[in-house]
Write a protein that binds this DNA or RNA. Structure first.
Length: 878
RNA sequence: GCGGGCGUGGUGGAACGGUAGACACAAGCGACUUAAAAUCGCUAGAGCCAAGCUCGUGCGGGUUCGACUCCCGCCGCCCGCACCA
């Protein structure tokens, strides 16, 4: 066996797998299926280390499951619509389509050398008309089911780029690209009725046992269920049509602490008032102005304006409360109107203090007397407090109990009703962009808004568009909008909004089960392959993508495109950590930071100091440096000394990136794959270090050398220790199997190091050594499939290692005949003994007490108690 | 503010309530070499320069024969949400 040359063997085995169609997913009723999916990439043009880590994890699972006898589906595609393609077209010319498909080709070419066990025959991009046409068909089905609707919504509008911006695209109140002040504008937008499923999306989280707790909690918070009372105040002095004011509260128990009511600036009453009163208009404009960012919200002062309108307290019509318009009331939560209870709500307290409103106390801490408050008293709802102004019992009780009693009491008095509210709002999917899935509807003067006929799908994006003028090219296309009404046949106009790209990624997992079908899915395929057994991706998609996918699967079931079992599409979810790297920084004369790529710096140790300098410099001879501080100061004065900032997510702007292609070029894919799986647990961040990558390559070279050495052994070499080798191998099989099952890839790799070290030191018989290294190859195969194939073949393994059944550990080899038991005296380890594994406890006890070291420690003291945990430990208490 | 998570050698990290620090990186020493690289071997939590002992998993308590692990209270860091009535 020659030297370890990853480049040669990796392309060789990739070709062999291709030729054998090793990874083609086949519907095989005789086998259990396993569907493993990594979140598909956006085709930016370059793969990065995060991709390598994500896809390697999926690949380990896929290859392992295949070896376990599952029929595996492991596909790959492209989340290909979206703004960057249009931005590129605006900046550099060209067409988003060419840019996108060019990037896909580039990225595919970068991914293939990783040797992933992907069924490439199922590949698609969401911008393929065959894909988005089926998405349009489902949109039409969803319209028919009432899951789609249009309404006016306030959006962030960029007046220069003439487009709607997402909240994340608004920076300091300005458009992220145009830098123009963003205006709030009301547009008619398309929505999916995800709110129909709020309760179910929440309750079904409990069933997702194999999802990270963190993600379930984040989703639950996002859906934001609350239970409260909705009721109407009677108003006085209000304009016609506003004689009642509906409010929602989660604290109806504090109703007798009400001192004012407040409405949002966008509340219908406020809007009515602003039309007739310039002062109100000025105030509501002020409310709307504030930034939408979190910090702006945080620091914004609470302001209000007394409308002069009064509401009557529902329990006592002689009590009148003023109605304010206030900037901290949100129109799209509850009813957009509240009653304020300053004593028990921080915001209401701040507001009441500012405007000199009364602060009536409803309850006090257990055992306390009523007193004026310097700050609001807001206990946990589970805390017991003494009610003073309760109306459903002035007892010592928890807020929870009081709220339930208050709702019941109000309902019986005919004041309002108990209501469950959700923060989750309907999903606005309209985008005024070109590079997205066209919404397949038609506007007809006679018939209104009508769905396109399915036989006319896909509604294709026109190719002849330009991006030299801001705005949506579909709007200004000379002919694309022209069409005929599917209902009456008259001339009509196409919708020019396209869908949010989150729609594209909300069902791609289902499409992979039948990627070329002329319907969105095919029942038999979806039935066989769904659900995704293991989904792997970044935590950044914990909320939106996963929640939308859960909704979409339900919508697909409701429209007949997925079986009932698939309404929760992802059985298990794993969120992997990031790949991080140190950041190398110097500063220019003006003190501005300059960042440097890892390959542009050199690090060495001088004494106990780690020094990083610019350039490819040879390490200095430590003896030549009499004064390290002076020497480093010198480097600093030259501008050569680099500041090392602790590891952070790889990002282009900080230049702390390592290009996977450079690593594959230098060390091969197996090294890259092994390294990203080693050391750190997969859910945590892993730090990429040059020395680590190099060390990995050295290790693989050692395995190669070991294989070579075993290959050179004479066939009749007897050696010794075959039993120990078999045991070590069995233990490794057991350990690695369990590690992979539990996503503890770092532990699997630690065990692989262990077995390799054992074999390197062993001197077994030739057949025993060959058997052991073949097993080692199989165990390595999920992480480093190429070198595994080479070793497997070289050592006489039959067929491909990738298709060989996973090794099983003989249980008899996993238990040792004798065990070493530590002996503790009063919980401190003092000695150890070796005993046969099934020796009765009483015998063990005797031997332990007779042990020389134990006798010495006991020094004749009486033994109070002795605990023998079989096979584990002995503890002597004196 | 609310919610979730984490704190172990120089570093990444192991450890069903049962020998803390597996495995690896970095480091040091040695062998081979004219030399270096590569390779191989050894050392390594801290302290008492050794056998051995003492102390050690953020801090303080508790439960237990026994606690990195479980419970209570602090401290620190990370992440998510955030004017949600």
């Amino acid at each position: 066996m020659s030297r370890y040359e990853p480049k040669t063997i990796e392309s060789k085995w990739q070709a062999a797998w291709d030729a054998a169609e090793t990874f083609k997913a086949r519907r095989d009723p005789a086998k259990p299926k396993y569907y493993v999916l990594e979140m598909f990439p956006y085709p930016s043009g370059r793969i990065h280390m995060g991709h390598v880590r994500n896809y390697t994890m999926g690949d380990v699972v896929a290859r392992y499951k295949a070896a376990q006898g599952f029929s595996v589906l492991h596909p790959m595609g492209w989340d290909a619509f979206g703004m960057p393609a249009e931005n590129a077209a605006m900046e550099r010319g060209g067409h988003p389509k060419e840019w996108t498909y060019g990037n896909i080709a580039d990225m595919r070419a970068q991914m293939k050398p990783l040797g992933l066990s992907i069924d490439w025959s199922r590949e698609f991009a969401t911008c393929d008309p065959e894909y988005y046409g089926q998405q349009q068909a489902m949109f039409i089905d969803m319209m028919a089911k009432g899951l789609v609707y249009r309404k006016n919504a306030v959006v962030n509008w960029d007046p220069v780029d003439m487009t709607v911006l997402a909240n994340e695209q608004v920076i300091d109140g300005k458009g992220w690209r145009s830098n123009a002040p963003v205006v709030r504008r009301e547009l008619t937008q398309w929505f999916f009725k995800i709110s129909d499923y709020s309760a179910e999306l929440l309750s079904a989280l409990d069933g997702l046992k194999d999802w990270p707790e963190k993600v379930r909690v984040m989703q639950a918070n996002w859906i934001g269920q609350s239970r409260g009372l909705q009721f109407a105040f009677t108003t006085t002095g209000a304009p016609e049509g506003f004689d009642r004011l509906e409010v929602y509260t989660t604290r109806p128990d504090t109703l007798l602490g009400a001192s004012f009511a407040a409405i949002a600036a966008d509340h219908p009453l406020a809007k009515h008032l602003e039309r007739h009163d310039p002062a109100v208009a000025e105030f509501t404009a002020e409310c709307r102005k504030g930034g939408t960012t979190a910090e702006a919200m945080e620091t914004a002062e609470k302001i209000g304006m007394d409308t002069g309108i009064r509401v009557l307290h529902p329990f006592d019509n002689s009590v009148e409360l003023p109605v304010y318009i206030a900037n901290f009331i949100l129109m799209d939560y509850g009813t957009g109107a509240i009653f304020g209870c300053p004593a028990h709500d921080a915001r209401d307290f701040e507001f009441a203090t500012k405007y000199g409103l009364p602060i009536p106390v409803v309850f006090v801490p257990e055992g306390a007397e009523e007193a004026d408050l310097d700050e609001p008293f807001v206990p946990m709802k589970s805390e017991r407090v003494q009610y003073i102004r309760g109306f459903a019992g002035n007892d010592l009780q928890t807020g929870e109990d009081a709220i339930a009693a208050a709702i019941a009491e109000c309902e019986s008095r005919g004041i309002g009703r108990g209501v469950t509210n959700y923060r989750l709002r309907d999903w606005g999917i309209s985008r005024q962009r070109y590079w997205g899935c066209p919404i397949p509807v038609i506007h007809c003067d006679a018939c209104g808004v009508v769905a396109e006929k399915k036989e006319n799908l896909p509604v294709r994006l026109p190719d002849d568009v330009s991006f030299d003028i801001p705005g949506n090219p579909l709007d200004r296309h000379p002919t694309w909008r022209q069409c005929t009404c599917p209902q009456c046949g008259a001339d009509a106009r196409r919708e020019t909004d396209t869908m949010d790209t989150f729609v594209d990624s909300s069902w791609y997992y289902a499409r992979f089960t039948a990627p070329h079908a002329t319907t969105p899915t095919i029942a038999e395929d979806a039935d066989y392959w769904m659900n995704v057994d293991q989904y792997i991706g970044g935590i950044e998609h914990a909320i939106l993508h996963l929640l939308y996918s859960r909704f979409f699967a339900r919508a697909m079931h409701a429209t007949g495109h997925l079986p009932a079992k698939a309404i929760e599409p992802f059985n298990a979810l794993f969120t992997q950590g990031m790949v991080t790297h140190e950041i190398y920084k110097t500063t220019d004369a003006a003190g501005r930071p300059i960042y440097h790529l890892p390959e542009d710096v050199t690090t060495f140790t001088v004494g106990d100091r780690r020094v990083t300098v610019l350039g490819d410099v040879a390490p200095p001879d430590p003896d030549m440096i009499p004064d390290i501080n002076a020497w480093m100061q010198g480097l600093n004065d030259e501008g050569a000394l680099v500041e090392v900032i602790p590891s952070a997510k790889m990002s282009k702007s900080k230049k702390n990136v390592v290009d996977p292609m450079n690593i594959i070029e230098a060390f091969g894919a197996d090294t890259a794959r092994w390294f990203v799986m080693s050391d750190s647990p997969p859910e945590r961040d892993v730090e990429w270090t040059a020395s680590g990558a190099e060390a990995t390559f050295k290790h693989l070279s050692r395995v190669w050398a070991l294989c070579s050495r075993i290959g050179d052994m004479p066939a009749d070499h007897a050696g010794e220790g075959d039993a120990e080798i078999a045991k070590a191998t069995a233990k490794a099989v057991d350990e690695i199997t369990r590690a992979i099952e539990t996503f503890a890839f770092n532990k699997a790799i630690a065990a692989l190091y262990g077995l390799t070290n054992t074999l390197a030191k062993a001197n077994g018989s030739t057949p025993a050594m060959k058997q052991a290294i073949r097993t080692l190859a199989q165990l390595m195969c999920p992480m480093t499939p190429h070198i595994a194939e080479s070793i497997w073949t070289y050592q006489g393994g039959a067929g491909l290692c990738a298709t060989a059944p996973w090794p099983k550990a003989d249980p008899a080899l996993l238990v040792d005949d004798t065990v070493t038991l530590p002996i503790q005296i009063n919980g401190k380890r003092r000695a150890e003994i070796s005993v046969p594994k099934d020796m009765p406890a009483s015998e063990v006890e005797k031997i332990a007490l007779a042990d020389e070291a134990v006798v010495k420690f006991l020094a004749g003291a009486p033994v109070k108690k002795i605990i023998v945990v079989p096979g584990r430990i002995i503890n002597v208490v004196i």
